[in-house]
Write a protein that binds this DNA or RNA. Structure first.
Lengths: 327, 327
DNA sequence: CTGAAAGCGCTAACAG
DNA sequence: CTGTTAGCGCTTTCAG
C-alpha cells in the first residue's frame, strides 16, 4: 500500500508538503498541489485513516450497539442512524449483543478500544447507574436512563397508549381488554397505566379480568384472546402490547369466525412491516424508527461536542396512530 | 485517556515491559506481570486499537457493504456475517449504499482507507469487471462475479425453481403460471428457464400466456393474478418470483373467493418473515440467509489468508422448500 | 511557500 | 527477564 512518503519521493518534495497539499491547506503553491494530487491519483494513493486517527485523536467513527440487528425494529433504527451519521461524515460500527449482557460489556470495551467518538446503545437489560458513565465517552441510550447523567431517546409510550385508547373509545367500543406485554417491562407498565386512566376518564369500568400480561408473541395473543372469549362478558375490543400479540389475536378471531372490527376491534403497537400488509391490515400505534434513529444521532453529536461534559438530553418521540381495517 | 507510558511510569518499568505483560508474552516475570495487570485494571487502562493497528498493520476489522440494512433480507445477512465475524475476533463495519452506485464507490474507498482486512459486498448494480479487483483487498461478493478473479456466494436459483415446480407438479397442478420478477434480473431469468424445463420434463405444455414479469411487489402480484383469472383457461397454480408477489396474489384470491390451495396453489420465493405468519402461511422457497452470511464470511477469511492471491470461490447455497398451507 | 523534526500509542527487534 | 530504540503513516509546529 502506497504512502505519503512514496509520493514525496516521486514528487521530489518533503512528505510534509504532500500532506499539506492533499489536505487542502492554504500554505502550498497551487502548482505543486496540482502536481501532487495528480500523482496521488496516478499512483492510487489512499490515505491511511488509522495513522490519521492516531495523530488527530479523532476516528470519525461512532458505534451503534443493539441486541439484534436482524430484528426489524433495530434494523430500521440501524438504517437511520447509519444514514444520519453518514451525512455528518461519520462511519458507523454496528455491534450485536444477542441480548447478552456479557457480550454487551465486551462490545462496549471493544468500541472504547477502537476509540470511536461516541456510542449509541440499546441496553439488553437494566443497567446499573454509573457503570456506563464510567466509560467516559459520549453516549446515548435507547432507554429511560437511570439517575445518572446520560442522554436518552425513547418513544412516549404513555402518549401512544392514550392515542390507542381514545381511538377505540371513539369508535364506540365499551369493553376494552388490555393484552399487555411482559409484565415487568417498563413500556408495558407505562401503557397499562394509560389504559386504566383512559377508561376512567371515559367513565368506563376497569375490569381486572380484561387485563393480562405475557410475551410479546403471536402465540401469546392467540391464547389470551381464547381465554377472554370464554368469559361471561367477553371484550368487544383489544388494546395489544405489540403487533405480534395483536396478530395472534386476529388469527384467533379469523379461526373462530369473529368479525373484525364488527364483533371485535383490535389495535396493536409498533407498526412492524407485516402490520400494513393487506392480508393483515392491522390498526396500530407506530413507533417511528426513523425519528428515533435520527434523534439518537443528533443527541450523540451534541454529546460529542460538549464532551467530557454531558448534555443529559431526555427525548421522547411521539408515536403515531395508524388506522387500518381492524378497528 | 491513559496510555502504556502512564502505566510504565507508575510501575517503574519501561513501557516495553508493560506491553509485554499486557500482551501475555512469555518473557516477563509473573510477579511484574501481575503487578502491571493489576495496575492497568486499577487505572482503567484500555489499549488503543488504533495505535495497535498502525504498527501491526492489521485492523481485525472487516466491512460489510449492502444496499439497505433495513431490508429484512440484508438485515438477516448482516446479523449472521456479524456473528460469524465476531467468532473469529473481527469487528464489522456495516455500510449502506442505498442502492446508489456512487455511494457504493465512496463506501468502498472509505473502507480501504480504514484499512479493513476484507470486504463483503452486495453490489447495487452490475459491476464492470476489474474495477473491484483493483481494490487489492480481500473481497467476497453476494453476486455471480464476472470474469474477474473474485469470490462469490449466491443462492442456487435454478435448484430453487426446480424444487418449487416439482412440488407443484407432485401436488397435481396442471396449469402452472410463472409470475416472475423484474425481467432483466439474473435470478428471474434463471428461474424462468427452470420453470419451463420442469414443465417440459413433466410433459406439461408451456403456455406463454401464463408467463409474466414485473416488479417484486405485492401490487404486481395482485394485478397480474387478476389478468390471469380473466383468461379462458386460468391457471390452477402460481410459481411466484418473490413472497411479496405471492402475497399479492394470495390477497387477490381471498378477495375473489378463490380457495387456496383448492382452486389455486401458490408458491413464493425468499421466505421473508411474514410468509410464515399464520395469517399468511405461504408455501415458499427459502433463501437461507444464515448460510449465505456464514459462507460469505468463511470465504472472506480464506481470501484474507491467501491475500494478495485470490481463492476465487464459487459458492452456491441450496435453497429450501417450506411447505405451508397455500399448496 | 517548503523542509526538518517531533510525536500520536503501540509492537518488536536488539542488546544487555 | 528487562530496557533501549526504531519505526507504523500521518499531522503539525517551528524554522528557514
Amino acid at each position: 500500500m502506497i504512502t505519503i512518503k512514496d509520493l514525496a519521493e516521486k514528487a521530489g518534495v518533503s512528505y510534509a508538503t504532500v500532506s499539506r497539499a492533499l489536505n487542502g491547506r492554504a500554505e502550498v503553491s497551487e502548482t505543486t498541489r496540482a502536481r501532487i494530487i495528480a500523482l496521488a491519483q496516478e499512483m492510487g494513493y489512499q490515505p491511511n485513516a488509522v495513522a490519521r486517527s492516531l495523530v488527530s485523536q479523532k476516528s470519525s467513527t461512532i458505534a451503534l450497539i443493539v441486541p439484534d440487528v436482524s430484528n426489524l425494529f433495530f434494523a430500521d433504527i440501524t438504517m437511520t442512524v447509519h444514514k444520519a451519521a453518514d451525512d455528518h461524515g461519520y462511519t458507523t460500527m454496528v455491534c450485536n449483543t444477542s441480548w447478552d449482557p456479557a457480550k454487551e460489556q465486551e462490545k462496549l470495551k471493544i468500541m472504547v478500544q477502537q476509540r470511536v467518538e461516541g456510542i449509541i446503545l440499546k441496553p439488553t437489560a437494566f443497567i446499573k447507574p454509573g457503570i456506563l458513565e464510567a466509560l467516559s465517552l459520549p453516549l446515548v441510550l435507547f432507554w429511560h436512563a437511570m439517575d445518572d447523567n446520560l442522554s436518552y431517546v425513547e418513544v412516549d409510550h404513555a402518549a401512544g397508549a392514550q392515542m390507542a385508547m381514545h381511538h377505540l373509545i371513539e369508535k364506540g367500543y365499551k369493553r376494552i381488554a388490555y393484552l399487555g406485554g411482559v409484565e415487568t417491562s417498563p413500556s408495558n407498565q407505562i401503557r397499562q397505566m394509560s389504559y386504566q386512566k383512559a377508561l376512567q376518564e371515559a367513565g368506563l369500568p376497569v375490569d381486572p379480568r380484561l387485563i393480562s400480561y405475557g410475551s410479546f408473541s403471536l402465540e401469546s395473543g392467540f391464547k389470551r384472546l381464547g381465554s377472554l372469549m370464554r368469559l361471561e362478558q367477553p371484550p368487544d375490543a383489544l388494546f395489544c402490547g405489540s403487533d405480534l400479540i395483536a396478530m395472534g389475536a386476529l388469527q384467533y378471531a379469523r379461526n373462530h369466525n369473529l368479525s373484525v372490527p364488527g364483533d371485535l376491534g383490535i389495535i396493536g403497537f409498533d407498526d412492524v412491516a407485516c402490520a400494513s400488509l393487506p392480508l393483515v391490515n392491522l390498526t396500530t400505534i407506530e413507533q417511528p424508527r426513523d425519528e428515533l434513529g435520527e434523534a439518537a444521532l443528533k443527541a450523540l453529536l451534541d454529546e460529542i461536542s460538549v464532551f467530557p461534559k454531558r448534555t443529559k438530553q431526555r427525548i421522547l418521540i411521539k408515536p403515531k396512530l395508524k388506522i387500518r381495517s381492524t378497528t
